[in-house]
Computed example of a mutant assay.
Amino acid sequence: MSDTQSILSIAKRTLETESKAIENLIDQLNDQFAEAVQYILESKGRVIVSGVGKSAIIASKIVATLNSTGTPAVFMHAADAIHGDLGTIQDNDVVVCISKSGNTPEIKALLPLIKIGKNKLIGMTGSMDSILAKQADFVLSTYVEKEACPNNLAPTTSTSAQMAMGDALAICLLELRGFSSADFAKYHPGGSLGKKLYLRVADIVINNQKPQVDATSGVKDVIVEISEKMLGVTAVMENNKVVGIVTDGDIRRMLSKYDNIGELTAKDIMTANPKSVTIDTLAVKALKTLQDNGISQLLAFDNGSYAGVVHIHNLINEGIL
């Protein structure tokens, strides 16, 4: 069995090889990359991304990235394209073919068919002498010196380079389109990522109870309100306005400070000027306020009126934290 240091050495060597290959892509960028981006930007069609083998898997990932960042894209397997799926390509579409060698049989068969359709072809290849590079309208070089595989066979470094080049393409298009976080939210409504972009305090407090006591309420009533509403806090009201809060921590501090609590009121033990947010605040910003102040609850207000409480556990349950 290999020892820990041997395993870590192999892993580090792999990552170093791949990171250097990606860094070398910077020097391979040229005017054709910029022209390809500009052509896609001005195109009225979609981006069709194709490949075979591991390159097909990378093509699928690039399609997902493009779609999620505002550029309509479709994956088309090169082998399936020459067996009926060529109809995927429409008149105004731009085709991106990915191939390390640029000479695979499926790519060779596909290229003339794309040319017949008069669609612009972007070739992403590691060989500038390949058929793909020679026939493409724009060539994106993803040349790598060697694979991370010790036999220089398994696609590793080359696929990392392809993925990085695809990301560069997508991010250029994203920025040139002025694609905003609001646009991003439209394409990512589910999961924690989407919630960080659209979930607001109003969406949370509506599901919580609304704890509140009068400033003159006795300690027993305060404790009961906190316990029943299960948010670890209650707002303290005076003349229909919030004048403070009482938290679980305030109750503990009261018990350690006073021997006789029978005459105490909510106003005696409350924390004045509590931290708060408006209901239209993004939940992720409410979380930052909680973290910055080392607290667990925030009061929420709607046009100056007390609307409820947002608790850090709400944000955990929503996947924001």
Rank of each mutant, 00 (worst) to 15 (best):
S99Q: 06
S99K: 03
S99L: 10
S99C: 08
K100M: 03
K100Y: 11
K100I: 09
K100Q: 15
S101P: 13
S101I: 08
S101R: 06
S101H: 07
S101E: 10
G102Q: 09
G102E: 11
G102H: 14
G102P: 10
G102V: 12
N103M: 06
N103G: 06
N103L: 02
T104H: 04
T104V: 08
P105M: 08
P105S: 14
P105T: 10
P105E: 15
P105H: 13
P105Q: 13
P105A: 10
E106K: 04
E106M: 07
E106V: 10
I107G: 08
K108T: 05
K108H: 07
K108F: 13
A109I: 00
A109N: 14
L110N: 02
L110E: 01
L110D: 04
L110H: 02
L110T: 01
L110A: 06
L110R: 00
L111F: 05
L111Q: 07
L111H: 00
L111V: 09
L111C: 02
P112N: 05
P112I: 02
P112D: 02
P112F: 10
P112E: 05
P112M: 00
P112L: 03
L113R: 09
I114T: 04
I114C: 01
I114M: 03
K115Q: 07
K115S: 13
K115T: 05
K115A: 11
K115E: 08
I116S: 14
I116A: 12
G117F: 12
G117V: 12
G117E: 09
G117K: 15
G117I: 07
K118W: 02
K118D: 07
K118C: 10
K118G: 13
N119F: 15
N119R: 12
N119L: 12
N119V: 13
N119K: 06
K120H: 13
K120D: 14
K120S: 15
L121M: 14
L121N: 02
L121Q: 04
I122W: 03
I122T: 06
G123Y: 00
G123C: 07
G123F: 01
G123K: 01
G123T: 04
G123E: 03
M124Y: 00
M124G: 01
M124D: 01
M124V: 09
M124L: 09
T125L: 12
T125D: 11
T125I: 06
G126Y: 11
G126I: 07
S127A: 14
S127L: 08
M128Y: 11
M128G: 10
M128L: 14
M128A: 15
M128S: 15
D129N: 15
D129E: 14
D129G: 11
D129P: 12
D129I: 10
D129R: 05
S130E: 05
S130L: 07
S130T: 13
I131E: 11
A133P: 01
A133V: 06
K134M: 04
K134L: 08
K134W: 07
K134V: 05
K134G: 09
K134D: 06
Q135F: 06
Q135N: 07
Q135G: 01
Q135T: 11
A136M: 05
A136P: 09
A136G: 04
A136W: 00
A136N: 06
D137P: 07
D137G: 04
D137H: 08
F138R: 00
F138Q: 04
F138H: 05
